[in-house]
Amino acid sequence: MISVYYFGAITLILIGLYAVLVKKNLLKILIGLSIMETGVNLLLVSVGYVAGKSAPILSEGIGPAQAVDPIPQALVLTAIVIGVATTAMALSVAIILHEKYGTLNVEEIRRLRG
């Protein structure tokens, strides 16, 4: 029985992938990328989850044995930052493309290249 967290995260990735592969509008593709990224982050966090354990902060009554896996959380923190940075850059590229070509349709843009 597949965990609902995994299922949800992978569904999000697939929705994002669908948008990237099929949508023609550049902004929609970028939205798809963001959704995919969210899905990946969720998947990573859910990998580290151990049923019944608490947050991995050492405090009263909570030792290393009672905490969930902290490594995916650190990874995801990094990934979120990277994701935001890439999205910001991609968006600025989108603005430039729109200024240059007057359209955001990827096929149109491809036809105009060169």
Binding site: L17, V20, L21, V22, I29, V106, E107, R110, R113
Partner: peptide
């Protein structure tokens, strides 16, 4: 190598 970003995404997928 057709210059279409989405084709490359398809290859990757």
């Amino acid at each position: 190598y057709n210059g279409n970003v989405q084709s490359y995404s398809w290859y990757l997928a």
